[in-house]
Design a protein around this nucleic acid. Structure first.
Ligand code: DGT
Ligand code: MG
Ligand code: MG
Ligand code: ZN
Length: 598
DNA sequence: GCCGTTTTCGGCCCGACTGTTTTCAGTCG
């Protein structure tokens, strides 16, 4: 059972609780634990095996006990007692918009009765009921509600609904397009993309956008006429929700400039940051919302046009959006101990770049030549870069040949740099490290003969095959690979491809300890579908005392501009400039990179 | 059910929108 399935189970129990009239705070606790578990970066069963379940935020003694039973026996008696009381098919109905627990319960109860063909799917039975207009006669329902459900079912069936979470980089493109459109409405004074987008989460569930407008009604009307719209999901006086092609949902909120600061705060979230912040304010008899800060004694609401002023008013430092995840940031802001997060302008180099150098590569070669890469590095203000082409193909080559290929590559690169004076042409760049990105073989050996290292300044080691291994075996494999000489960086450590390939199973504590011991940097890979190490593991690695390099893994020169994505991951992991090695000026960085003794 | 440098008990965010309502429930964010 993976994290996703565990959180699913908890949500099912929460829903059963809701229908059976359990305490609503217990329901919230289950849902919060479910969210928390879904966002974990470590397999929950590993946490369980270490006896650390209660260290998960939102998991206390009771849930830890239930989860222990779940992992030991495969099911939880207490859970089943509740979920077994739910009608068959009920949970399937919840995927339909506007159908929540209460509605799903009443509907599925009806649809499980005799007149309905029990061999038909719950959706087919619902359709029959709707066509026969019997829903409107159920208690609490009416004609309009019946029609709502009818429309919602139709949209579900036709696929007119929100699809899976999209990459942050795709959200960037969508938001830029939308901005072009919105800017044509002269009522609009301000546009900001908020929610998970502003927090720079690796994926976003929807696009949240706030605008200040002189004429909200006109602006909302204009918004829902966006050419890409396939459905207007919701519309009111304060905003609207639309669905555009490819199943991306966009939430708009419109507000007056005078209250824009409080809207920024609310709509940026996260949900749990907001809740924690509001609870903290309540201790001072203040009630927070997108409309401002209400003094509960006088009943008066103070407006905020600036978000910073909003935080200041409740005696907190302004908190960077990336860390608004209820992970201690509010306490830190109160104590004036917020980390000074690394920024993109701190970055002085990029160590993971693939060039178009022509040789028998084991994986895809890059598309850009050294000069293009150097020019880009110079434009970005870098003092050093690393050329990290993949190691040569093993098959069909003897060790001797591979060593020769590596030597020849070094000679060629140096020829370009010094004889052809490329380094002189881009004087800001002081050094190009001659590197490889070397595969970690299944047995933990490097896919490169050791003598080839004589012709390299340092190497990145990465997993590119056999991603599915038992955790222990994978950990051993990595630990072994981390002990070879000249290893400087562990590239895209989890091997995940967002929405495509799961991260590997490994004991990350052991891996982090090894990196620390051998002074090897963990890579934060900025490729938008990798973002690897993931933010949560960055946080954990930091606690273990590890350090990082943020690299782009560019296979084309323009991908070097992906660097801010990696920086965002580092920021979400609470990393400061001093935690990131490639923020160091060349002289200092070079000491670490070119250290001898290995 | 969870949680705590003022608490191990007594708190637990707040609003938009819709429908079926005579004052609120359900869903979503
Ligand atoms: N106070 C409060 N704010 C909420 C709640 N739900 C959502 N918000 C705020 C904070 C969220 O960041 C913001 C946008 O909501 P979303 O559902 O789009 O969540 P978010 O963008 O954080 O994540 P996402 O990637 O869309 O799943 O609205 C809530 O229950 N209470
Ligand atoms: Mg969102
Ligand atoms: Mg949203
Ligand atoms: Zn690479």
């Amino acid at each position: 059972m993976n994290n996703k399935q565990v959180s699913e189970k908890l949500r099912e129990v929460a829903i059963a609780y809701e229908i059976l009239g359990e305490n609503r705070f217990r329901i919230n606790a289950y849902n919060q634990a479910a969210d928390s578990i879904e966002n974990l970066s470590t397999d929950i069963q590993q946490i369980w095996q270490r006896g650390d379940l209660q260290k998960i935020p939102g998991v206390g003694g009771s849930l830890a006990q239930h989860l222990d039973e779940l992992f030991t026996k495969g099911s939880v008696k207490h859970f089943e007692e509740f979920t077994n009381k739910m009608p068959a098919g009920m949970y399937d109905l919840l995927i339909i918009r506007t159908i929540g627990p209460k509605t799903a319960f009443k509907l599925s109860k009806l649809l499980n009765e005799k007149p309905y063909n029990q061999r038909a799917s719950i959706y087919e039975r619902l359709e029959t009921a709707l066509n026969n207009k019997v829903i409107q006669d159920l208690e609490g329902f009416g004609e309009k509600r019946q029609q709502d459900i009818y429309d919602a079912l139709k949209k579900y069936k036709s696929g007119t609904r929100k699809k899976k979470r999209i990459l942050l980089s795709d959200a960037d493109v969508i938001s830029q397009r939308l901005s072009v459109y919105l800017k044509k409405d002269k009522n609009i004074q301000k546009i900001d993309y908020l929610g998970s987008f502003r927090r720079r989460k690796e994926t976003v569930g929807d696009i949240d956008v706030s605008v200040a407008s002189k004429n909200p009604a006109q602006t909302i009307n204009y918004f829902i006429q966006y050419p890409d719209v396939v459905d207007v999901v919701d519309q009111g006086e304060k905003g609207a929700t639309i669905l555009i092609n490819d199943g991306v949902q966009i939430d708009l909120r419109v507000i007056d400039l005078s209250r824009y600061g409080s809207m920024l705060q609310y709509f940026t979230g996260s949900k749990y940051h907001n809740i924690r912040l509001r609870e903290y304010a309540l201790e001072k008899d203040l009630s927070l919302s997108e409309w401002g800060i209400k003094d509960k004694k006088t009943g008066k609401t103070k407006k905020f046009s600036s978000e910073k002023d909003f935080y200041t008013f409740i005696k907190l430092e302004w908190i960077p959006p990336e860390i608004r995840e209820d992970q201690g940031e509010i306490e830190a802001a109160f104590d004036k101990k917020l980390p000074k997060l690394v920024t993109s302008s701190d970055i002085k180099g990029d160590l993971h770049i693939h060039s178009d150098y022509d040789y028998p590569s084991s994986h895809d070669r890059g598309a850009s030549n050294l000069e293009e890469l150097l020019k880009k590095a110079s434009d970005r203000g870098y003092e050093y870069i690393g050329l990290s082409d993949h190691n040569p193909k093993l098959s069909g080559h003897t060790d001797k040949q591979i060593i020769a290929i590596t030597k020849e590559r070094k000679t060629y690169i140096e020829h370009l740099l010094y004889d052809n004076k490329l380094l002189q042409k881009y004087p800001r760049v002081k050094k190009v490290y001659i590197m490889y990105e070397v595969d970690i073989r299944t047995n933990g050996a490097l896919a490169l003969p050791e003598q080839a290292l004589d012709y390299l300044d340092g190497i990145i080691i990465s997993l590119h095959s056999n991603f599915v291994l038992p955790s222990q075996e994978m950990t051993q494999r990595i630990v072994k690979a981390l002990s070879f000489p000249k290893v400087r960086i562990f590239g895209h450590p989890t091997g995940r491809l967002i929405n495509e390939r799961e991260q590997i199973a490994a004991d990350w504590h052991q891996v982090f300890e090894m990196c620390k011991k051998n002074q090897i940097a963990l890579e934060i890979n900025s490729s938008p579908k990798r973002l690897d190490l993931p933010d949560m593991l960055v946080q954990e690695a930091l606690k273990s005392g590890c350090f990082f390099t943020i690299d782009t893994d560019s296979h084309q020169v323009n991908q070097m501009d992906h660097m801010p994505y990696g920086v965002s991951v580092a920021r979400r992991g609470w990393a400061q400039k001093s935690d990131i090695l490639n923020t160091q000026p060349f002289e200092r960085f070079d000491k670490w990179f070119m250290r001898g003794g290995d």
